[in-house]
Computed example of a mutant assay.
Amino acid sequence: MNKLIIILTGYVLLTSCSTKTFDSSEALLVYIKEPGNEYVYTKTVNGVDFSLLYKPTDILVHQEITGKPSEGEIDSLRNKYKKYLYFTLSMSKNNQELLSNVAKDKQRFGAMVNELAFGMEEKVHLYTPKKDTIMMADYIYPRMYGTSGATTMLFVYPREEKVTNAEFMTFTVGDVGLYKGEVKFKIPTKIMNNEPKLKF
């Protein structure tokens, strides 16, 4: 009886830790956008809606592939992108970009454009349970000029051992002018250490 319990326990642990693989990028996106899978997090603070999405390596690889790639090309791209962690942060108010909510105030508009384009390294942070800060490698703020329902940015961090060895990471967003205080997201590192993959 005890032997059977041990075998069943081992099977459950093995299947729960196995890497999920998807036939298409659409299926993978559906999976990571399901809150129960812990890749996406949402909060609303003072009327501002926040959505934070962790993007697995193969999403980035897929975006760069054209045609039918060879196994060597896929491995090369995976090695390139897996060195980093990628987070997409979306912020909106009244289902609009943040800038759309201050458009009539030229001074605030200019200050927020400057903040979003050049100052997010001071506003957005990723750190371990021991409060070790992970230095941001890069971030991208594409101007949408009011054509999108949210201000969406990509943040890139190095995949350091102190990240992968921790139980969770904390991602924080400081005040950019439409809300007060700091918004925090607690992210389990198991989603980074056991990322879903694509069949290329």
Results as ranks from 00 to 15, higher is better:
Asn2Ser: 09
Lys3Cys: 09
Leu4His: 14
Leu4Phe: 13
Leu4Ala: 13
Ile5Val: 14
Ile5Trp: 11
Tyr11His: 00
Tyr11Leu: 15
Val12Leu: 13
Leu14Met: 13
Thr15Phe: 13
Ser18His: 14
Ser18Tyr: 12
Lys20Gln: 05
Thr21Ala: 09
Ser25Phe: 10
Ala27Val: 09
Leu29His: 05
Leu29Phe: 06
Tyr31Asn: 04
Pro35Gly: 08
Asn37Met: 08
Asn37Lys: 13
Glu38Arg: 14
Tyr39Ile: 05
Val40Cys: 06
Val40Lys: 03
Lys43Gln: 15
Thr44Tyr: 11
Val45Pro: 03
Asn46Gly: 10
Gly47Cys: 04
Leu52Lys: 06
Pro56Glu: 08
Leu60Lys: 12
Gly67Asp: 11
Pro69Ile: 09
Ser70Lys: 08
Glu71Thr: 12
Ile74Met: 09
Ile74Leu: 03
Ser76Phe: 11
Leu77Gln: 03
Arg78Val: 10
Asn79Thr: 07
Tyr81Thr: 05
Lys82Ser: 10
Lys83Thr: 05
Phe87Gln: 00
Thr88Pro: 00
Ser90Pro: 00
Met91His: 05
Gln96Ile: 08
Gln96Pro: 05
Leu98Met: 05
Leu99Ala: 02
Asn101Glu: 09
Lys104Ile: 12
Asp105Cys: 00
Asp105Phe: 07
Lys106Phe: 15
Ala111Met: 13
Met112Tyr: 00
Asn114Ala: 13
Glu115Asn: 09
Glu115Leu: 15
Ala117Arg: 07
Glu121His: 10
Glu122Asp: 12
Lys123Leu: 14
His125Cys: 02
Tyr127Asn: 02
Tyr127His: 13
Tyr127Gln: 11
Thr128Gly: 01
Pro129Lys: 07
Thr133His: 14
Ile134Met: 01
Ile134Asn: 03
Met136Arg: 01
Tyr139Trp: 10
Arg143Phe: 15
Gly146Ile: 06
Gly146Phe: 07
Ser148Pro: 08
Ala150Gly: 04
Thr151Tyr: 01
Thr151Ala: 06
Leu154Trp: 05
Tyr157Glu: 02
Glu160Cys: 09
Val163Pro: 00
Asn165Met: 12
Glu167Met: 02
Thr172Pro: 04
Thr172Asp: 04
Thr172Ala: 06
Val173Met: 09
Val173Gln: 03
Asp175Phe: 07
Gly181Phe: 07
Gly181Cys: 04
Ile187Asp: 04
Met192Val: 11
Pro196Gly: 03
Lys197Arg: 15
Phe200Ala: 01
